[in-house]
């Protein structure tokens, strides 16, 4: 399953007037955002400002109360089949809490993301091993997440998110638990993805990551109601 080619004039991410609330809590209030294809945007802001919520909406994990979201020119709607494909092929999501399956090994966690793609068993294993080696996790490939450190789990989660070579990578604090060496490996991987035309939107408080981004924006600046 390959990605659809994209007109370079179409933004990779377009968020128009999106609001989201949970009960009385307003998570996002009339937010606008456009990210061009190939951009590396770092999104900052205080805790509870709605950064993770915005990533979840962009990954189609939930729906906005109001407003529209386009990812690679496609409006996120209710069609389940399209959303599955979006989560599997178009978008890779690095969760803040990693969300690895504890029962599976690091390699199997990465492989699980490649079911329902064109890759066969051997190709899935080869791709998983390639990414784990790239992120200095080759020796932990057969270990399960509960036995791994926070940094190792974070890198395994990044390997899973990029396994299908997504056109858009959404990363929630991808370097928060990483030492300098490990962070460098991840940043190099991000750079390589960007060189390949991928768009990256990362939520982070990590100054090392902010320095790598082509644009750093604050979530507070995205709300039109605050202007």
């Amino acid at each position: 399953m390959s990605r659809r080619p994209l007109d370079s004039s179409v933004p990779a991410i377009a968020v128009h007037d999106v609001s989201k609330r949970y009960g009385r809590t307003i998570a996002l209030d009339h937010v606008d955002l456009e990210v061009a294809a190939g951009e590396f945007v770092v999104l900052t802001g205080p805790s509870g400002a709605g950064k993770s919520t915005l990533l979840n909406l962009l990954a189609a994990l939930e729906k906005p109360d109001t407003g529209t979201i386009f990812v690679r020119g496609h409006r996120l709607g209710r069609r389940s089949r399209h959303l599955n494909r979006l989560r599997r092929v178009e978008v890779g999501l690095v969760f803040q809490l990693h969300n690895l399956i504890p029962r599976l090994t690091a390699r199997e966690n990465v492989e699980a993301a490649m079911f329902e793609t064109h890759r066969g068993r051997r190709q899935r294993t080869a791709r998983a091993d390639e990414l784990l080696e790239r992120l200095d996790l080759a020796e932990r490939a057969t270990d399960r997440p509960p036995t791994m450190s926070g940094g190792e789990r974070q890198r395994a989660a990044i390997a899973r998110a990029v396994a299908n070579q997504p056109a858009v990578l959404l990363a929630d604090e991808p370097s928060g638990s990483l030492d300098d060496h490990s962070a460098q490996l991840v940043f190099d991987l991000f750079d390589e993805m960007r060189d390949g035309g991928a768009t990256i939107l990362a939520v982070s408080h990590d100054s090392r990551l902010e320095q790598r981004g082509s644009r750093v924006i604050s979530i507070a600046d995205l709300s039109t109601s605050a202007a």
Binding site: R85, R87, E116
Partner: peptide
């Protein structure tokens, strides 16, 4: 429940 949610969030179809 969480495990199934993770599968769905990484693109697994309901059928799978």
């Amino acid at each position: 429940i969480r495990e199934f949610g993770i599968y769905r969030s990484i693109g697994w179809s309901r059928f799978r």
